[in-house]
Design a protein around this nucleic acid. Structure first.
Length: 262
DNA sequence: CACATTTGACCTGT
DNA sequence: ACAGGTCAAATGTG
């Protein structure tokens, strides 16, 4: 699969631990509608929620305990209810609801997260202000931070925009880390959200140019199928399309090419 | 035995 | 009344 690559050091745990969201640092794949937009955290009974679509609803880096299952009207699949396993001893009120969406292979699940985890205090997730911010000299010494938006998939028509984060340590280390993630609207700076689509596209292309430079510093190994870089090898800078050649493991999430195309 | 899951009952909002 | 969310006893598992 595409997760192991280069020095077998694809690491996603850092962002996972810093994210308020249950998946490796950012919300997982889902349908989105415009550049730099994605699912918005919504309010659920006055509590923030995050709705994700994923083929692997059960592995998101947290420990859940199932507490209910309900047949839902007009749905072929039951709705599963989970709460954080640390609810009692750590007073963590995070819950999630898993609803199978279809019978595809693999099936797609809609996962609704309610409340953020308070069971495992960790440094705050990168704020929206970090997006497109110049890395500090200290940070740049260890890694280069890229976050960019693109349309995902092989065709522009079917492609929903996603926002990706690509991370790489200093080229001098010879170790590359790549992370394909997505940012919710709330994780993106308002300055970007408010930009017209054309302007956002330009910004995205500028970041992709940076990505190309970064790749030139540490070229991807050739003929490696399970190379994370392969996931980014099909960028079309004119159309901002990309494709995945293989599954990509991101944190605890498995991205499948077909799903990324959505 | 401890813990997780299952599943029907119960509760609540519309 | 109905649908959806939660509880909790029964059951399963290591």
């Amino acid at each position: 699969m595409a997760s192991r690559h280069l020095l077998q050091t694809m690491q996603f745990t850092d962002s996972a631990s810093r994210s308020p969201w249950p998946h490796g640092g950012v919300p997982p794949p889902t349908a989105m509608s415009s550049p730099f937009s994605s699912r918005k955290p919504r309010m659920h009974d006055g509590h923030p929620t995050c709705v994700n679509l994923t083929p692997i609803p059960h592995t998101d880096g947290h420990l859940w305990r199932k507490y209910g299952e309900k047949k839902i009207k007009n749905s072929s699949f039951p709705r599963l209810y989970y709460r954080c396993s640390y609810r009692d001893d750590r007073n963590c009120m995070a819950t999630k609801v898993v609803q199978q969406e279809n019978d595809a292979d693999p099936p797609l699940y809609r996962v609704t997260y309610i409340h953020q985890h308070t069971c495992n205090p960790s440094p705050p997730a990168p704020t929206a202000a970090d997006v497109f911010a110049e890395p500090s000299p200290a940070k740049a010494e260890h890694q280069v931070f890229f976050r960019f938006s693109s349309t995902g998939g092989h065709t522009a028509a079917s492609a929903d925009p996603v926002v990706h984060q690509l991370r790489q340590p200093a080229a001098t280390t010879g170790v590359a880390q790549a992370q394909l993630t997505m940012l919710s609207d709330d994780e993106q700076p308002a300055s970007i959200r408010s930009e017209p689509p054309g302007r956002r596209l330009s910004m995205f292309r500028a970041v992709v140019d940076g990505l190309r430079q970064m790749r030139s510093l540490v070229p991807p190994p050739s003929a490696r199928v399970d190379d994370g870089w392969d996931s980014f090898s099909a960028f079309d800078l004119d159309t901002c399309e990309f494709s995945l050649d293989d599954e990509l493991l991101c944190g605890d999430l498995m991205y499948f090419p077909d799903n990324v195309q959505q």
